[in-house]
Design a protein around this nucleic acid. Structure first.
Lengths: 415, 415
DNA sequence: CAGTATTTTTTCGAGGCTCGAAAAAATAGG
DNA sequence: CCTATTTTTTCGAGCCTCGAAAAAATACTG
């Protein structure tokens, strides 16, 4: 139910807005902030001087040496890197990666580790995750007390409230309440997010010109995942992280999917499906547990070299992705697409069939105007997204407390 | 870009909130409004006395005769029906319907008319629409000057800004800027919405317990349409009204659809498709222009009577709808569904195959928890949705002017 | 090199809004 | 008729933002 605005909300909201403006712009002057927020100079002056006193912002004296304009020079405001720090934890198939990020978004410290996630017990999976975080927290070089938030990302389905991993292809265990576990273990607020959603968040920060209000990030990896930003907000399901593009049905009773069902998009376009088709193993063949990036690159190389089952496997993947995107476009209209992950590097093998399929669908009329971009490496993106998620939390909940995060305000969702 | 909150926005927003509270609750007392908005009694008192003086609200003395509590009795606030009026225009296949609605939401006056929309020229289609509105405006019984807004709904695709009909199955003509045409013709602000979206808006007002934050309204009529509410907001595409569930691809290169493509959900589940299958005409047969409701009811009766091609046609429709919903649920998670339109009356013939198909998809795990409700008559729903849309506009833009409609505030979208 | 123009930032008083407390209003119970 | 109870209004206090003017900091000009 919508709730009234109290008088004291005003300042808090505008504080949050100033912080957000600085985070977006990097080193804006007070005048620039006044312009983008359409608040008066007096207000910006008052708020920013508060924030500087509190150690949240700092004045970065020489805004830019280049600008030799007449008049008093602008003084840039920037985030004080020491104001806080957050931690990111990215859990993917057989791989765990942790980083500590300062308030300005720079990586301070990191650690990565190979695991056998598919066969580990529930407890040792959780134990490995908490142990690697503990090692970072106890690193003598770091000021432990300043970790304000932990953001986890995992391949798989998480709940809307960002508390639990509900299901994941990387482990047979389900319903692991990572956020609660971490909060109990370390006393630090934690959230648990879907990896592809974090990719989308990161893309929006990396390239706001291309990825602004509406775009699609698709992970072409062992499985097929999607992060969706619509109207400037991260799209999630009614109960879970949603956006399970890879498990839309391409063909009822079709190829066997890793999820146990049949005919999912992933069962034609995931790495294991491309592998299965390239090896002509048949649609009923049990999906292999993992295909190395090197193997996939070799497959792509073979497909480029000669017209054989490898090339056909990529063509099929493209066709299915195209029909899937077509159905998606029927719902949300066309939007720019970022293809991420190892098979995005083989997008040249995928694109022709993909475009041909889209042309047969509701998205067809705009087929040519749909832009595709590729980014082979998903891990840095996921980490960046987690970092931004956690930092925005600090911005809003710690440095502008009391603002009820409400949709549409300061970018609750995507930030 | 998010914009700061000015000091004078405060009052305007809280005014809008009080109006919204009254519209939702019917006859709330000041105390109840204070409770739901969490504003102080003093503020509510000040705002509501303003609104009463301005003739927007009225005090309805005897709140309820029943409540014989101790203490000063509550005095209910209600919308003043004479504060404004709006007009709704619903254009569907071969049918045009107009109504004038008072500020409290009651129909004051209406007119309906049969047309041959498929064969009419562009100009006569527009002409018929403006003529019927003009007749209502010039009705001597009505206070013409008080029409504050016209809301149109049409089967088909409209643009996100609610200005134009981009494409519609009811006419060969495209890109008709109805909103602009009406504004120019009558000098009254107008919007052009998608019919199924208005159904969803209406369902939310009719039954907020069942249809609150997340639900799906599906129109089973000559074509298949959908209105979707997610997280309390009406879902629309990036450029158009979106949600073209009927044109998701069920089977590449499948049955011929009215849209000219192949394999769309509609090409198996629309009235014309059920008709075509029941008559065993083959998937390539040109879709018939219209099937009367009586014919469809006869078809359903035949299907109930004996196991023949009619029953199989409904089964097929259910199967395809089920796989389509399954794909939709992969994206948004399961949610309550309202089946609307003449074929919703045959939902008993559709449901078994539909549920069986959903069970094969990502929605399957929650198959039993998905609730279906049916409503055979779409027209009243569409009109109600239009009326609410228009009235909310009056609430926000006319009676609480200056509030930049921003998402998440006071229900910009669904209201 | 001093003075002027220009631009940014801060200061200060005015006006407006919400809040809490207290008063006023309106009814049931005894 | 008086008291208890609940709703609604009144009133002063405290904030917040705004506009205007002042202050600050630099480039230009002769």
């Amino acid at each position: 139910m919508s709730v009234g605005i109290r008088h004291d909300d005003l300042r808090r909201r505008n504080r949050a807005m100033v912080i957000a403006a600085v985070r977006r712009a990097g080193q804006p002057s007070r005048t620039e902030i006044a312009a983008t927020t359409s608040l008066s100079h007096s207000t910006i002056s008052a708020i920013s001087s508060d924030l500087i006193v509190e150690g949240i912002l700092t004045e970065s004296k020489p805004s830019e040496a280049g600008s030799l304009k007449r008049g008093r020079p602008q003084v840039g405001l920037s985030l004080n890197p020491e104001a806080a720090a957050v931690m990111t934890v990215v859990l993917s198939l057989n791989f765990l990666s942790v980083a500590v990020i300062d308030y300005a978004g720079q990586v301070i410290s990191e650690e990565q580790r190979r695991l056998d996630t598919l066969t580990m017990s529930r407890d040792s999976l959780i134990g490995e995750c908490t142990a690697i975080v503990r090692r970072r927290l106890e690193d003598p070089d770091l000021d432990v007390r300043s970790i304000a938030r932990i953001a986890l990302a995992v391949q798989g389905i998480t709940d809307t409230r960002a508390r639990s991993m509900l299901w994941s292809p990387i482990t047979p265990h389900t319903d692991i309440a990572f956020a609660d576990i971490f909060e109990e273990e370390f006393g630090i607020p934690a959230i648990m997010e879907n990896d592809c959603n974090m990719m989308a968040v990161a893309l929006r920060w990396r390239d706001p010109d291309r990825y602004r209000d509406d775009f699609i990030a698709i992970l072409l990896s062992h499985g097929i995942g999607m992060g969706l930003v619509l109207k400037g907000e991260l799209f999630t399901g009614t109960h879970s992280s949603g956006g399970e593009f890879g498990h839309m049905i391409h063909r009822p009773n079709g190829a066997l999917c890793r999820c146990g069902r049949r005919g999912c998009v992933e069962a034609y376009a995931g790495n294991y499906a491309i592998w299965r088709n390239a090896r002509q193993m048949g649609e009923d063949a049990e999906p292999v547990a993992d295909v190395s990036d090197a193997d996939m690159r070799a497959l792509a190389a073979a497909a480029r070299e000669r017209d054989g089952p490898e090339r056909e496997a990529y063509r099929k993947a493209g066709e299915v992705l195209g029909y899937g995107l077509g159905s998606l476009f029927a719902l949300i209209d066309p939007a720019p697409v970022a293809m991420v992950g190892v098979s995005a590097a083989a997008f040249d093998l995928i694109e022709p069939a993909l475009r041909q399929a889209i042309a047969q669908t509701a998205g067809g009329q705009h087929s040519k105007s749909i832009s595709f971009d590729t980014e082979p490496n998903e891990l840095p993106l996921i980490r960046e997204g987690c970092a931004m998620r956690a930092l925005i939390f600090v911005d809003q909940e710690i440095f502008a407390p009391g603002v009820q995060a409400r949709s549409g305000f300061g970018g609750k969702n995507v930030a």
